[in-house]
Amino acid sequence: MLEAIAADIRKGLVGKSFEGSMTFDCGADGVVVLDNGRVDTQAQPTDCTLRLSSDNLKKLLRGDLNPMTAVMMGKIKVSGDMSVALRLGKLIG
């Protein structure tokens, strides 16, 4: 399930750059790791972790979920380096 999301992120990164590393932690569904432009579904230490449901991850990546609103509503929990999380907005915006 998350492999398809990872593949979509890989496509979305073509021609873009992302510095730093981030984990999208979708609980029992697994993780998607973005690490200096590479995308994987194997857990590893990263600068920042976003905890959210896989449905909310899909909405976030489609632009159907505003990241700031989602954090305020508790749909996304951020831990680690907040500056890395803020770079995500430029990537998907």
Rank of each mutant, 00 (worst) to 15 (best):
T49F: 01
M73T: 05
L34C: 02
A28P: 11
I5M: 10
T23E: 15
K59G: 02
L52M: 14
V14S: 11
I76T: 03
D64Q: 11
K75V: 01
D81N: 11
T23Q: 15
T41G: 12
V71W: 07
D35P: 03
D47H: 11
D55Q: 08
V84H: 01
Q42D: 15
D64I: 00
D25Q: 03
V32R: 03
V78N: 05
S83R: 12
N36E: 14
Q44C: 15
T49Y: 00
M68K: 13
G20P: 04
K75N: 10
E19A: 13
V31R: 10
L13G: 06
I76N: 06
L13Y: 04
K77M: 14
V32C: 07
A70I: 03
T49D: 00
T49M: 04
G15I: 09
T41M: 13
A28Y: 02
L50M: 07
V14L: 14
M68G: 12
G80F: 05
N36S: 13
G74Q: 08
G63Y: 03
G15W: 09
S21F: 10
K16Y: 08
A4H: 08
T69Y: 08
T23R: 15
L61I: 11
L61D: 02
R38N: 14
M22W: 04
C48T: 02
E3K: 11
S83T: 12
L13H: 03
F24I: 06
V33C: 03
V84W: 01
G30Y: 03
S17G: 15
E3V: 04
G74W: 08
D8C: 13
N66E: 09
Q44E: 15
S21I: 12
K16G: 08
M22P: 09
A4C: 05
F18M: 14
L88G: 04
L60K: 02
L86Y: 02
V84P: 02
L65S: 00
V84M: 03
S83M: 14
C26G: 03
F18C: 13
A43K: 15
V31K: 11
V14P: 06
V39M: 13
K59I: 00
D25H: 05
T23D: 12
D29Y: 05
F18T: 07
L34M: 05
L60C: 04
A7Y: 12
V84K: 07
T69F: 11
I9Y: 04
L34G: 01
V39Y: 09
S79I: 07
R10C: 02
D29W: 03
G15V: 08
S79Q: 12
